[in-house]
């Protein structure tokens, strides 16, 4: 674990029912350095540092996993859908190519 990374999970709409298909947005502050860029001042190559894996886990079941390459924008956003299937927790785990591992989660509370 390196420094704490700011990240955010959003469920849309904010209020949802069991069985409803909602949108899930996951965003994280990450430089997504491709390993080909140079530092403007030092002229040295900035080593590659990009998110290479993102996994969505809902109540212990992996619903989506992504292999990520260096072409995603800085501070990337990942949007998928998910079918609400009971109260619980959505956990997003992501790693980067330098070995950073992070986990963030949000409660899932369907109404009705």
């Amino acid at each position: 674990m390196a420094e704490k990374r700011k990240s955010l999970i959003k469920i849309k709409p904010k209020k949802y029912k069991d069985g409803e298909v909602v949108k899930v947005d996951f965003m994280v502050m990450h430089p997504m350095d491709t390993g080909m860029g140079k530092d403007k001042k030092t002229k040295e190559i900035i080593p590659a540092k990009y998110i290479n894996s993102v996994k969505f886990n809902y109540n212990g079941k992996e619903i989506t996993n992504m292999t990520v390459w260096e072409s995603l924008s800085v501070n990337p956003v990942f949007t998928t859908n998910m079918k609400i299937n009971g109260a619980g927790k959505l956990t997003v785990t992501f790693t980067d190519n330098t070995g950073e591992v992070h986990e963030t989660s949000t409660k899932i509370k369907p109404k009705g």
Partner: peptide, 27 residues
């Protein structure tokens, strides 16, 4: 046209409910 053409691979399951993915890429 990118030096690495591969941007992202998203593996879905029926639990997604819909087959949609959205992000932002560098070109």
């Amino acid at each position: 046209g990118n030096s690495n053409a591969r941007c992202i691979d998203v593996n879905l399951t029926p639990a997604n409910g819909k087959a949609m993915f959205s992000t932002r890429i560098k070109l």
